[in-house]
Amino acid sequence: MKNEYIPQLSEIKEVIKHTELEYTFRMVYEGPVKPGQFFEISIPKFGEAPISVSGIGDGLIDFTIRRVGKVTDEVFENYVGDSLFIRGPYGNGFEIDNFKGKELVIIGGGTGVSPMRGVIEHFAKNPSDAVSTTLIAGFKSPQDVLFKDDFKEWEKTINVIKTVDNAPDGYEGHTGMVTKYIPDLKFKDIKNAVFICVGPPVMIKFSIMEIEKLGVLDEQIWTSYERKMCCGLGKCGHCKMDDKYVCLDGPVFNYTDAKELFD
Rank of each mutant, 00 (worst) to 15 (best):
P200I: 09
P200S: 13
P201L: 13
P201I: 14
V202I: 15
V202F: 04
M203G: 01
I204H: 01
I204Y: 06
I204M: 15
K205P: 01
K205Q: 14
F206C: 09
F206M: 14
S207N: 11
S207V: 13
S207D: 09
S207W: 02
S207R: 02
I208E: 07
I208S: 06
M209V: 13
M209K: 11
M209N: 10
E210L: 01
E210M: 08
E210C: 09
E210F: 06
I211T: 10
K213A: 12
K213W: 12
K213G: 11
L214M: 13
L214I: 11
L214Y: 08
G215Y: 13
V216Y: 04
V216M: 06
V216S: 05
V216T: 11
V216E: 03
L217C: 08
L217S: 13
E219C: 10
E219S: 12
E219H: 14
Q220M: 13
I221E: 06
I221M: 07
I221R: 05
T223E: 03
T223V: 11
T223A: 05
S224M: 14
S224Q: 13
Y225A: 08
Y225G: 00
E226A: 04
R227Y: 08
R227K: 12
R227T: 09
K228W: 08
M229V: 07
M229G: 00
M229Y: 00
M229N: 10
C230L: 04
C230K: 03
C231M: 01
C231T: 03
L233R: 04
L233E: 03
L233C: 00
L233Y: 00
G234A: 04
G234P: 02
G234C: 06
G234N: 05
K235M: 10
K235F: 03
K235P: 01
K235W: 04
K235D: 05
C236R: 04
G237V: 05
G237A: 07
G237M: 05
H238S: 08
H238N: 12
H238E: 11
C239D: 01
C239F: 03
K240A: 00
K240V: 08
K240N: 02
K240L: 07
K240E: 07
K240H: 00
K240R: 11
M241G: 01
M241A: 05
M241F: 05
M241C: 04
D242P: 00
D242G: 00
D243H: 11
D243C: 08
D243E: 14
K244S: 13
K244H: 11
K244N: 10
K244I: 10
Y245N: 06
Y245I: 15
Y245V: 09
